[in-house]
Write a protein that binds this DNA or RNA. Structure first.
Ligand code: ZN
Ligand code: ZN
Ligand code: ZN
Ligand code: ZN
Lengths: 146, 146
DNA sequence: TGTAACCTCTACAGTGGCTGTAGCTTCATG
DNA sequence: CATGAAGCTACAGCCACTGTAGAGGTTACA
């Protein structure tokens, strides 16, 4: 713990990443296998902690682990051109934009359903009615029946 | 197939739901176990097809299967008050709104990263730089370090 | 030195909502 | 009656974790 070695719990506290998740990242090769103490406990360097912080930050921004793997590879080669990194971020931005557009359409549909709320019986419930019949929806960006 | 009985493939075509997914819904109790033909093949009624269409439509609108299970129960009791159904839809709307808000914040962060694109080297790449250091982010709605 | 409290270890199962595969049997059509 | 499509069961895999069990390691304090 002195000379800059961190236990897995300290790593967890410093990065906000759960202990099991750290072990999982090691298992899938996203984090290197660290040193072990005489009692077989993992000992991490500050560099390992920074790498984990990078991973967590990218995850928080929605990057999938495969993209993060690429980004880490790139980060390890500072003299290479950064186009690949920018492309990964651009792809992520596009994915986020697509998800936002889809969710906004769902939001509208849900609002429309709920606008007709009337406190009546299920038989007259607009929510159930719309779910049972997509033609009562305004948007056509979901569903694909006969 | 006459007298209104549908094979699983016909169900699939009419609802846009994959065959395996239909069997999966049966397995988790979302669809009832249908009749079987003499050769052990599933035979569905129109009612079953409507139920599946309801499930798929709700899924397309993002409802989780547990919520759909509740909605189906409610739909089966038309004389009950519809408050519970409205509440489920309202909860779904809220969940969608939360997801949109989060994604919009991610979108901004990604746009900020990419705005500084310069076609240089990784060492000066804003994308890598920001991912390595959350304090370079504008929003605080992600990450939780030491 | 004892011991209690806490941390870490491995290994594996479960989450949600499917999707894919392998190796069969059954069905519809010519 | 042969062929090919469609159906059957059972199970593994996807993503990104999360939780659990049961063992062993470490630390703080009396
Ligand atoms: Zn209602
Ligand atoms: Zn619809
Ligand atoms: Zn760059
Ligand atoms: Zn950040």
């Amino acid at each position: 713990m002195r000379d800059g070695r961190l236990t897995i719990g300290q790593m967890s506290r410093e990065t906000g990443c759960k202990v099991q998740t750290i072990r999982y990242y090691e298992q899938i090769g996203l984090l290197p296998e660290p040193e072990r103490s005489s009692g077989n406990q993992r000992l991490y360097s500050n560099r390992d902690r920074d790498r984990l912080a990078f991973i967590r930050h990218a995850r928080e921004l929605g990057f999938p682990l495969d993209a993060i793997r690429e980004l880490l590879k790139l980060a390890d080669h500072p003299s290479q051109p950064c186009e690949a990194a920018d492309a990964i971020a651009a792809a992520q931005l596009e994915a986020v934009e697509i998800r936002i557009a889809r969710l906004q359409s769902l939001k509208q549909e849900l609002e429309r359903m709920l606008a007709h709320r009337h406190g009546g019986k299920i038989a007259d419930c607009r929510v159930i009615e719309v779910l049972a019949d997509h033609s009562k929806c305004s948007a056509d960006d979901h569903v694909a029946p006969s």
